[in-house]
């Protein structure tokens, strides 16, 4: 496992990260290293700050970083505009994907692919090559091809939107994918398809951070590490068995142990 290579540099290194929304401090000091090839699951009760963490990493303007440092592929991330982060290979699958009336999926996705290629000193992808790639990904993600002909997410069901996020991820091939509760609100079939999309992305070069409330998705995606976030801090880290333990004991167990100072 790459994680065990003690000399390797983490793809993502978070140190003492604090962030707030308005006057409310949400992240109170996060430390986390993610190496290439790893899948980290971040679990926690509502309001613990797990979605905030994913969004702060992606650069959502609603949050203010108040302290700490994040290195992504050795580059200090927090000063960068969200689009630069994306072009460097960071991807956020939104918890609530937005509808873009009038924006065709093809155009939207190609603009993203091309922006990243130009950032890397490559030329824009030809329309034909992009078409072929998109078709292959549509099959891979098992999304209805008719949905892709429509405006992005317009009138999509919740499940279709989430699946579309996974399609975007498959097309953009990120280095680091942040999935913000992508599993919420999915039925069992959609969950399996979304999980397959994530597993397809998994490679020794990529890393995935899976933000989730429920253990359920971890039946399909086996993480290398599980972290429990509580009140803006990672209070517990472990292997997949930690998720199982959480499932059995519930988040109250975490609350009790934190309150007891364990």
């Amino acid at each position: 496992m790459p994680a065990s290579e003690k000399n390797a540099t983490p793809m993502l290194s978070i140190k003492g990260l604090t962030a707030s929304a308005g006057d409310l401090e949400i992240l109170k000091g996060i430390d986390l290293d993610v190496f290439a090839g790893e899948v980290h699951a971040i679990m926690g009760p509502n309001g613990s700050g797990k979605s905030t963490l994913a969004n702060v990493l992606a650069g959502r303007p609603d949050y203010t970083v108040t302290g700490g440092e994040v290195l992504f592929q050795g580059v200090s991330l927090l000063e960068l505009e969200p689009e630069i982060r994306a072009r460097m290979g960071l991807f956020l699958a939104f918890q609530y994907p937005l509808e873009l009336p009038g924006v065709r999926a093809w155009q939207f996705l190609k603009a993203g692919v091309d922006a990243r290629r130009i950032h890397n000193g490559e030329e824009e992808m030809s329309a034909r090559e992009f078409d072929q790639m998109l078709k292959a990904k549509i099959v891979e993600v098992q999304i209805d091809p008719d949905l892709i002909k429509r405006a992005v997410n317009e009138g999509f069901s919740g499940g279709e939107k989430k699946r579309n996020e996974v399609l975007q991820m498959a097309v953009l091939q990120p280095k680091l994918a942040l999935l913000d509760e992508t599993d919420s609100g999915l039925d069992i079939d959609a969950l399996r398809i979304v999980s397959e999309g994530v597993n397809n992305l998994r490679s020794p070069e990529n890393a995935i951070i899976l933000v989730t409330h429920y253990q359920r998705i971890l039946d399909y995606i086996t993480p290398n590490h599980v972290h429990v976030l509580f009140d803006g801090r990672i209070v517990r880290s472990g292997g997949p068995e930690l998720a199982q333990e959480l499932e059995e004991k519930g988040y109250d167990w975490i609350k009790d142990t934190v309150d007891a100072g364990v």
Partner: peptide
Amino acid sequence: TLFYLRSRGLDLDAASRML
């Protein structure tokens, strides 16, 4: 919505232009 487009790599100008 703008952030959604930017998170896919489009800069502010390209994103607002697209919208």
